[in-house]
Each structure stands twice: as C-alpha cells, then as structure tokens.
Design a protein around this nucleic acid. Structure first.
Lengths: 221, 221
DNA sequence: ATACATGAAACCGTATACGATTGTTCAGTG
DNA sequence: CACTGAACAATCGTATACGGTTTCATGTAT
C-alpha cells in the first residue's frame, strides 16, 4: 500500500494511458507535435517508455510517426475519414447484430433516453454535444458484443474518429434529424428480436448514410 | 550504395520484419519464448529496437507479452480461433465484395487455377499444402480491396491464423471438398458481376461454414 | 516425504549517453 | 533581391548500464 498508489503497472503503460487520454480528450489537436523528450519530462520518466507508448498509439492509428522526424497526433483527412467510416460501418454493424440478443430492456431504455436527449438537442444544435450523445447511444448497442476482437476494432474506429471533436453532423446538420429517427428504428428492431441479418443491415446502413451525407456535402462545395 | 544495402530503415524495423518473418514461416512455434537479449544478439543490435519490434507484433496479435516475464509466440486456443475466424468472416466478406468489381478475367483465371490445384490435392490429402493454396485463392479475391484499413485487418487475421500451419481442414477433411465447390461458386458470382451483397454473403458464409465444421467436430470429441 | 524458506541466475524495465538525421537560420554570392 | 550552401539547433535512434522482478533450484524444518 504505497501512499500514492500509482496503480498503473509499467511506466510505458502509464505513458500510454496518459498520452492516449490527452489525445482523446482533445487536449492535443491533430497535427500537434509529440516531442518525446518533452512528454518524458512531463511524465517524469525517460524517453524509452514514452517511445513504446507512442508506437502503441501509432499501431492504433491515433498517432502518426515519421522516421527521424517525430510523432504527431493523427488528424484525419477526407480520404482517411472515408476508409474509417466504411470499416466502422461493417464492424459496428456486425458488433451490433451480435450484441443484440444480449441487450436487455434496461439497455434499450437507456439508449432511448440518450436518443431523446439527442432529439432535444436538435433545436439549439450543438454538434459537439450531439456527437458525444451519438457515441453514447451506439455504445449501448454494441458494447455487449461477445467477440472481443470485433469489439476492440469498433472501439479503435471510434477513437480514430474521435479526433473530429464534432463529426459529420456539423457539416450536414440535416443528417442529424434522420439519424435520430434511424436510432429509434434500430431500437425497435432490437426490441422485437429481429433477425441478426436485419439488425446488421440497419446498423450498417445507418452509418453508411452518414458517410454518404458527408460525401455529397463535400462534392457540392 | 552501401555494399550490403540492408535497405530496411531503422533497426527496429529490421527487427520487426525479421521476427515477423520467422514467426510466419513457422520457425518459432506457438509458445516459443522470445528472449529479448537472445534476439538482439542474433540480429546484431541492442535490445531497445527489439523491444519496439516485439511490441508492434504484440499489437498485431502475433506475440503475447507478459510483464516482467517476457514474450512468447502467440498460439491460438479454440476460443481465440473462434473469435478470429468470426472477425475474419465479416472483414473478408466485405473485402471480397469491395474487391469484386476490380477483379479482372486474369485474376479469376488465376484463382481458378489455384482451385484446380486444391481439387487435385484432395486425393492424397496434404492439409498444409491445401491450407497454403486456400490462402492463395482468397488472396486473389480480396487483394484488390480499395479500402486499406479493411485489407490490413484481413491480412492481420490471416497472419494470426497462420500459427496453425494447417487449418481446420486437417481436423475436418470433409470440409475441404465443400470448400473447393464453394470457391467455384464464388468465382461464378464474381464473373457475372453479381451484387455486392450477394458476394459478401457468399464469402462470409464460406468462412463461417469452415468455422461451424470445426465447432461441430470439436463438440463430437 | 512434503512444504516452505532462501538464495542465485535469468531476464525484463528504464535511465543515461552519444552518434545520426533533419530542418533552419544566416552569411555569402550571382 | 533571390538563391545556394554551410553551420547550428533540435530531436530522433540505439547502445550500454544498472536496478528490479520473476523463476527455479537447493536446503531445511515439520
């Protein structure tokens, strides 16, 4: 029982957790230069564990690393956005379908409450808050996925998208309305224990539609 | 133009490539203890870059790492096998469907040739060779996938499965026959430019069927 | 004979140090 | 004034060194 009880195991894990946390919180914005020695000083460790942490974050796609140059917080250009959203549509669709049989009435109620907040949010539209709620909503749906590989990949995808503090909805506010409606439809499917195939398709299309909305918007500029 | 022209950039990358290669070739079998200092000596570098390489391989699921104990080549227990196969069924199905429109007649011919070899292989059944051909066949189908994220995940999945030098077919030889037939059906779908949905479903089911065959086999023991 | 304590050996984790690479600034020249 | 090139600063990459943890073997007590 050490007084401070850092609890985190190795220093590289501490560093990993600390940096990841700061990136996900948006304290470092995309493109921010992650200088190893600075981070090491900030955490009170040497650079070696920091390097390991950075490489792990790189593998997760949260950090971009360039040899002999350094690490930067991974932004997300339109092309990457497309790839990530498409991948996520597939994985999250599957995760939601696999998760569906394990979603209880309480979960559905919770999701519905979140969706109600989202609907309320539509009036004085706040893209950041809406995006956060959107994530909360979907988390309820896929979090019970019994396959940890798939679940992990879904989390990874969301984290990568997280660098956009406010998602597509900022650029395509109209999509927000549809999204809320589709959420309710998705909940109905789950409540009525619809077939896995239907749920998967609905969940996937829900996300693809957001992507398409973005692409159309981008095209018209 | 250095005489040796190692070509590989940093030593950690060299180490990464070397270790990965040896694992995929099966020189290290699952459970093999990867001692950092030994590997470092073997490659003529220090342990620091080797650590980085190992951590990268860990992130890819090829190596299991235990704190203060060390790294071992990741085996694959039945549960992991299930997870990996399920994930791969989803991702490879999608990759194949996305790839389909880009698959030319030459590719189809190549795939068909491989499948012919597989069929020939059925007589004097050699599970290892059959498994290798199976990978070759599917590679042709998904390699054109335009989404690098999905493609990367598919590769990763195959690599993880690679520790089983011979796959399910060893345990369920009957599955090999069906598999070859399904391959031909898949090629027909691609040739006739069937809908993406149909191709995806066929590719996914093809893999799920292999998994199911394995599960039934395991149950009956 | 079994269980437990003790010690040593193997190995991992991290700090420090130094060489290597990159990007930048500033003087010199056309 | 624009451009080239060389010195400089910042930062990365890796080797080495040492302290800490785990594991295993040995010996002792019950």
């Amino acid at each position: 029982m050490v007084e401070s009880m850092v609890a985190a195991g190795s220093k590289s894990e501490q560093a990993y957790a600390a940096i990841k946390d700061q990136i996900l919180q948006g304290l470092y914005s995309p493109g921010y230069r992650l200088v190893l020695s600075k981070i090491a000083d900030g955490l009170g460790v040497s650079v070696v564990p920091v390097r390991e942490a950075i490489r792990r974050l790189e593998a997760e796609g949260l950090v971009k690393f360039e040899r002999n140059v350094g690490a930067t917080v991974a932004g997300i250009d339109p092309v990457e956005y497309l790839y990530t959203m498409q991948t996520l549509s597939i994985l999250e669709g599957a995760a939601t379908a696999l998760s569906a049989p394990l979603i209880g009435a309480a979960d559905v109620a919770r999701a519905r409450a979140v969706n109600a907040e989202m609907r309320a949010c539509l009036e004085h539209f706040d893209p950041i808050r809406f995006t956060q709620l959107n994530k909360d909503f979907h988390s309820v749906l896929f979090e019970h996925c019994p396959n940890p590989h798939i679940l992990g990949l879904v989390h990874q995808g969301w984290d990568q998208l997280g660098s956009l503090r406010s998602s597509t909805f900022r650029f395509v506010p109209g999509r927000a309305h549809e999204s809320v409606d589709e959420h309710e439809a998705l909940l109905r499917l789950i409540e009525t224990a619809a077939g896995a195939e239907d749920i998967e398709k609905a969940a996937r299309l829900h996300r693809s539609a957001t992507l398409d909305a973005y692409l159309n918007q981008a095209k018209n500029i």
